[in-house]
Amino acid sequence: MGKQLVVGIGDMKLGRQEGTIITYALGSCIGIALYDPMIKLGALVHIMLPEKVNSDSNIFKYADTGIKETLRKLYAYGADKRRLTAKIAGGAKMFEMKGGGSMGNIGERNAQTVKRVLSQEGIRIVREDTGANYARTMSIDLQTGMVLIKTFGRPELRL
């Protein structure tokens, strides 16, 4: 089992070799697990909005700044872009608002932005479990890079 790092909302943790990194109950938010298998270095970032629009200092809240900062850290720890892969989960629409509502589908916009930013950064998305209407708890095993998704009333999913 080893040690477990917990990632909050708008937060990021990285680790190497052993243990797991987990983030709980991703709703419209998205968890992005990045992993370099050769040096067994992984990171999990939990973003909640697509793009940074103001001078907000919490860069991990946003897909664009959060992913870029996570990659910067991973490169600093020796990750190689050609080996890095991404697995993403979340982006659900928790409530079906009849008649639209001003909230729109933030989960879907999050997912689109995450994919766009990863593609701009040249990172491959190897697996994803996004959309639908339920929350997901996501964890990455730093020994193998395997991602586990837990939901309510559905079997566990391995990515």
């Binding site: 709980y24 109950a25 991703l26 709703g27 419209s28 928790m94 339920y134 929350a135 309510f152």
Partner: peptide, 8 residues
């Protein structure tokens, strides 16, 4: 669903 997802 999960409390955390709902509060998101």
């Amino acid at each position: 669903n999960m409390l955390g997802g709902i509060l998101s």
